[in-house]
């Protein structure tokens, strides 16, 4: 059996000694649209960041198609949260999308006509072909999100990790993005999406990862997205884990 697109073993992630994800074990299936679901502060973004090497692993390991991420970067596309960048930066929409090709280009090589064409076609895929020369501040929130999506498409990956791609976008853009994600999935790609709007989960995702500091459940939406699992994910705000994490952060051993 070929290696799965994502495999996580015993992963614990900690910021400043405070664990934010505990002991995650997970195997994700290929070619599916996968929702990462959980309340605020559940560690959804952290899960993605840990996989991409952006958050420090306190323990455990991550495998992308059987190998560490550092060797498989070219297979992975990433859409960070929209608020993480300064949109007043002096770049155009096309410039940003072209950044998706930088990884393949390697050191010193500049993007050329081929990269420009690819970026343009990615802009078309997200319905933003008319906006290529715009400075990115002049785009609406939904359009900015689509630019980020186009940049990930330009990475030409097999697996995509998207951090809240629906945050702050209008209903029409959300629908357009979902359609695009479905077409990626139908093309055999695996797409992970951080999401927190519960109503749409059944419609959007084939597979869900329910998260609240630890892995509550992971599996096909039909069997996993159940009332009981949701209660476990969302119920009881201050869980034992949270209290334990707080104790570790304060650094006071129990008496």
């Amino acid at each position: 059996m070929p290696a799965p697109p994502l495999e996580i073993h015993d992963m614990t992630v900690a910021y400043h000694r405070k664990p934010v994800l505990w002991d995650i074990d997970l195997v994700a299936p290929e070619g599916q649209l996968i929702g990462i679901i959980g309340p605020n502060g559940a560690g959804k973004s952290t899960l993605i960041k840990a996989v991409l090497g952006l958050a420090p692993l306190a323990s455990g390991q991550v495998r992308i198609y059987g190998l560490p991420y550092a060797q498989q970067r070219h297979l992975v596309g990433y859409v960070p949260q929209r608020e993480t960048v300064d949109w007043d930066f002096p770049v155009t929409a096309l410039d940003v999308v072209m950044m998706g090709t930088y990884g393949r280009l390697g050191w010193f090589r500049r993007p050329g006509a081929a990269e420009r064409r690819l970026a343009q076609s990615c802009l078309e895929k997200v319905g933003m072909q008319g906006y290529a020369p715009r400075q990115i501040q002049q785009l609406s929130g939904g359009q900015q999100q689509r630019i980020f999506l186009a940049r990930a498409l330009a990475q030409d990956a097999h697996i995509y990790f998207m951090d809240e791609p629906f945050a702050g976008v209008d209903a029409a853009t959300e629908q357009a993005i979902v359609t695009l994600l479905q077409s990626l999935r139908d093309g055999g790609k695996t797409v992970f999406v951080v999401h927190h709007e519960l109503q749409s989960v059944r419609n959007y995702f084939d597979f869900v990862i329910l998260l609240n500091l630890r892995l509550v459940a992971a599996g096909p939406t039909a069997t996993t997205f159940t009332r009981q699992n949701l209660q476990q994910t969302y119920g009881g705000r201050l869980t034992i884990l949270e209290e334990a994490a707080e104790a570790v952060r304060l650094g006071e051993p129990p008496r």
Partner: peptide, 16 residues
Amino acid sequence: KEFKVFSFDPGFARAQ
């Protein structure tokens, strides 16, 4: 190119 992507979006640059 490297300075550009790093200055604009350090997280993305690192993931790349």
